[in-house]
Design a protein around this nucleic acid. Structure first.
Lengths: 212, 212
DNA sequence: GCAAAAGTGTTGTGTCTACACCCATGT
DNA sequence: ACATGGGTGTAGACACAACACTTTTGC
């Protein structure tokens, strides 16, 4: 589960109490109940940590089956990428915390690799889908959105060009209202919102488009 | 397992003898052995149908867990996309056949949806990776490659532009040799080959590139 | 007026499509 | 010579990045 928090892309991790990997950080999750869907299962396990309504997007990453990924046991795991808007602040149990994705603590199992795979998937999808909606509040200014994209992508993003790309692609729409400037002045910023809050591809054919 | 065969993108299906879905067509695959990797398992099951050395690419699609996807039983399945070069002609058991992906026969379980998901994954990757290597023979002319891309993408592709895109991206390299024209004449075509036969992203940042 | 923050105008660059044209071969 | 198929030249459309400039606010 990823979120931009304090201007940094973070992942929710849970500190393991028991062996194996006692004291190391792990992704939330757990066993599948009979007859349960993978998605239902991850939502159920997450609900213990976070209110599920806060989840703005959830998608499957992959299934890992290497026999040595869990010591002394052969165990399959299907990983999911979950996103939470930056303005959500779920109350957390004591043994969980948001860790910067680019400075992970020692993790249990292959969870470090899974987090990086999730980060990479998010970065890719920010380029060619409307995935930003899942990180952003309901309405926002372009500079707020620039900061979110910057944190998620790991490099500076120009507000000017971000605005133009997302407006050209019809991903954003103006709400009509504005945000009052802070005490240091400045022009009031217009508020925007994502036209859709469901994942959609916005830049389908990079090349080799079908002919007219 | 997909292949361009007779100028059409096809999938290898296996005719089920037993219930459920007796007589309908299913994807090759089967149960996982204890301690076995998913990839090893699919390769093992495929080896019965096709020589595994013919597989030029294999990647995981997704894991399906809907309780009603198999009647009277709750069963998880992880699907894979396998590609076979167009010039491979594996001998097949009697109960398997290559079916056009765009005109699938009635399929068992959710296998029809899986095939379409694989097709869509292939189409997307042809745009921004070197995935074409997995459909093409070792060496080929641009027009052969155009036909392969056309069959896989489902629309006409211009040889002119295909050549320029793939050369600009350094995906193809000339072999130096040529192919003799047929009896109807025509300029002899140069032969090309893919520089790499491992999947690689060739058009990384569609937009929002990192600054210099 | 001046600083701060937001937003627009403009120019340049690179990638792709479309299409005209040229090249090398067989008959 | 002419048909056939391969390949190149070139121009236009478009999306994007960069950066200068203008707008609107607080102090």
């Amino acid at each position: 589960m990823l979120q931009v928090r304090d201007g940094v892309l973070r992942v929710l991790l849970w500190k393991r109490a028991r062996e194996p990997f006692a004291g190391r950080w792990a992704l939330p999750g757990g066993y599948l109940e009979p007859g349960e869907t993978l998605e239902d299962s991850i939502r159920r396990h997450l609900a213990v940590k976070v209110d599920v309504r806060e989840l703005s997007h959830l998608e499957q990453l992959d299934t890992r089956s290497e026999p040595d990924r869990v010591p002394d046991e052969w165990q399959l795991a299907t990983s999911y990428l979950g996103l939470v808007p930056t303005d959500a602040d779920p109350g957390l149990p004591d043994d969980t915390a948001w860790h910067p994705v680019d400075r992970l603590p020692p993790t249990a199992f292959d969870h470090g690799a899974i987090v990086l795979a999730g980060r990479d998937r998010l970065r890719a999808k920010l380029s060619y889908t409307n995935a930003g909606f899942a990180l952003a509040p309901e309405t926002f200014t372009i500079s707020q959105l620039r900061d979110l994209y910057g944190a998620a992508l790991g490099h500076d993003v120009s507000a000017t060009n971000l605005q133009r790309v997302l407006l050209r692609r019809n991903v954003l729409e103006p709400t009509g209202s504005r945000r009052e400037p802070g005490r240091s002045g400045g022009r009031p910023a217009s508020l925007f919102r994502f036209r859709s809050r469901e994942l959609a591809i916005t830049d389908e054919f990079a090349v080799l488009r079908p002919p007219r």
